[in-house]
């Protein structure tokens, strides 16, 4: 292996692409004359006619089907519910995102956060750099904010930001996601549309978008369902009812 293999090398790329075009017997750069137009609008229309109340019901049903503990609470009960979660799961070490105070205040849990007493309280925080991963690994639980909840599949979504990173959702043992009812969408499609637009308009800057449906699981041993293989052992979604 004397020769150095270069990435991002025009010659490497062009040789490869020309060879495919030649084998396919089709000239390159014809795509602009034939952009993809989908045959039907099923992705947009499926479940698109549901009311907010129906979406909430569907989200609950589908989340519970995938072993999620699904709670609906009024905004002023959120703090009490989070405390209950910590007690029930016997959480000693907790990881939280480092969003600014107004986000916590919006959800009426700013005081709750500031008054938390735990053996270890970690924030996914700029100051900790990659050590955030070590802290997340040591955490019994993470309590985070989801961008959307998908009714069809019981899926929460979260784009990686500096306040709430990738490992945040995977390393802690238990996991709770907070999501407002107004952020329940029918299907993955509607969330993708929003992310796609935000990325293209530079309103969202992220390298990673997670769609998470329930706890980690595997059927690799005799197809018996094992819950909690690499990611969290259990998942709780807390939906804040619309005011």
């Amino acid at each position: 292996m004397a020769e150095v293999l270069k990435a991002n090398d025009p010659k490497n790329r062009e040789d490869f692409l020309d060879a495919i075009a030649k084998k396919a017997n089709r000239p390159r750069h014809e795509l602009k004359n034939d952009p993809l137009k989908l045959l039907n609008d099923l992705p947009e229309t499926t479940l698109a006619d549901k009311t907010p109340a129906e979406l909430l019901d569907l989200a609950k049903k589908n989340s519970e089907l995938i072993h999620v503990d699904f709670k609906t609470v009024k905004a002023d009960q959120l703090a009490a519910n989070l405390t209950k979660f910590i007690e029930e799961k016997e959480i000693k070490s907790l990881m939280l995102p480092s969003f600014a105070a107004d986000k916590w205040a919006d959800f009426e849990i700013l005081d709750w956060k500031d008054e938390l007493e735990l053996e270890h309280l970690y924030f996914w925080d700029e100051a900790n750099g990659r050590d955030n991963l070590i802290n997340a690994d040591k955490s019994d639980a993470a309590i985070g904010f989801a961008d959307y909840l998908l009714a069809e599949s019981g899926t929460i979504t979260a784009a990686t930001v500096k306040e709430q990173g990738r490992g945040f959702h995977f390393l802690p043992t238990h996991y709770l996601a907070i999501v407002p009812q107004s952020k329940i969408l029918p299907r993955m499609r509607q969330a993708i549309d929003r992310y796609d637009e935000a990325l293209k308009q530079d309103k969202l800057k992220t390298s990673n978008i997670n769609f998470i449906s329930g706890p980690s699981n595997s059927g690799d041993i005799e197809m018996v369902l094992i819950v909690g293989v690499h990611g969290p052992l259990d998942m709780t979604y807390v939906v804040i009812e619309d005011r």
Partner: peptide, 11 residues
Amino acid sequence: QKLTSYCTFSA
């Protein structure tokens, strides 16, 4: 499954 537990878009 409707979606698997993890569906991720990443760079």
